[in-house]
Amino acid sequence: MDYILNKKGIKRPTLDEVLAYDNNILVEKFSATYSCDTSVSKFIFNETKKLFWLFNESNFDKFGNLSIDDSLIILDEMWHTFILFTKDYSTFCHDLFGYYIHHKPTSELEKDTYIKEINSLSKKELLEKKSNEKRPQYEYIYDKLGEETFKTWYLELNEKLNIEGSISIKNITLKDI
């Protein structure tokens, strides 16, 4: 999944400014949808706000497109929930970044093409391909948001919340993350 943007009037808020945004109704909706503790939803929302900030920063750094891979799927789910609150999401984007961050899901054709491609590779080739594709994004996240966020996104969230490709956060508390 990628994001699309209109580059006119881009703002460059600090990470703290983005993290200062709160939306309790969104957090409650996410908690109800995924049967999880509100503190977990707040935590996931904060991580999602970091992702939005990173999308914006990548424009200034001319990094290119960041993608949401399997490890970040829970952040994508929070993004989906936020988009449902259309006015809040639009205001958040415009006030903080100066533009609306559009969500572009991966199409079935894109998924099928990728699956065919990786199925034709040996294990060694597949590991090399994944490493080459993901390394720049991993390094960018690590450099911009630090080791703690990198570990949270790529080790802890995946381990705790994404079990065999399905999201299961029921009965997870913040101390579990």
Rank of each mutant, 00 (worst) to 15 (best):
F45Y: 08
E108Q: 15
S41F: 02
S71K: 10
K29F: 13
L157P: 07
G64D: 00
L127W: 13
G64F: 08
S35D: 12
I141A: 05
S31N: 10
T81N: 06
E57R: 12
K116F: 10
E110I: 03
F150K: 11
F92I: 05
I83Q: 08
Y99F: 13
D2R: 13
I163H: 11
N59C: 08
N6T: 02
I169E: 03
S107W: 09
T113Y: 15
S166T: 12
L174T: 07
I115T: 14
C36H: 09
L51W: 10
F150A: 11
L161E: 00
S122Y: 12
E128C: 12
N132A: 13
Y34P: 01
L126M: 14
I172S: 02
E125Y: 11
R12T: 06
T173P: 00
A20H: 05
S39K: 14
K11C: 06
I74Q: 01
C93G: 00
I44D: 04
S131Y: 15
D22K: 13
K104A: 14
K134V: 09
D112K: 15
L157Q: 05
D176Q: 00
K144G: 02
V18R: 07
E117T: 15
L121F: 15
H102D: 12
E159T: 08
R12I: 08
K29R: 14
A20M: 07
I115A: 12
N59S: 07
K129G: 01
L145I: 01
K124V: 14
F63W: 06
L174S: 09
D176L: 00
N119E: 15
V18W: 01
Q137L: 09
K50I: 02
S71G: 09
W53D: 07
C36A: 09
T113C: 11
K11D: 02
K87I: 12
G165V: 00
C93L: 02
I118F: 14
S131G: 11
N162Y: 13
I101Y: 04
K62C: 04
S35M: 10
S31H: 10
K87F: 03
Y99D: 02
Y21R: 09
T149F: 09
L109G: 07
I177W: 04
I169Y: 08
Y138L: 12
L121P: 10
T106P: 06
S39F: 11
E17K: 07
E47W: 01
N59E: 10
K111R: 15
F60L: 06
F60I: 01
I169V: 11
I115Q: 15
T38H: 10
E147T: 13
I118C: 13
I4C: 04
K8F: 07
I169D: 02
F43I: 01
N46T: 00
N171Y: 10
P105L: 08
T48Q: 01
H103L: 03
Y34G: 00
I73N: 03
W153H: 05
S58R: 09
G98E: 08
L15H: 00
K130I: 13
I169K: 04
S41E: 06
G146R: 06
L54F: 04
R135C: 09
N65K: 11
H103K: 11
P136I: 13
E159I: 03
N171S: 11
K130H: 14
K50C: 07
D16Y: 08
E159S: 13
K7H: 06
I118R: 15
E159G: 07
I172C: 08
F85C: 04
I163F: 10
D176W: 04
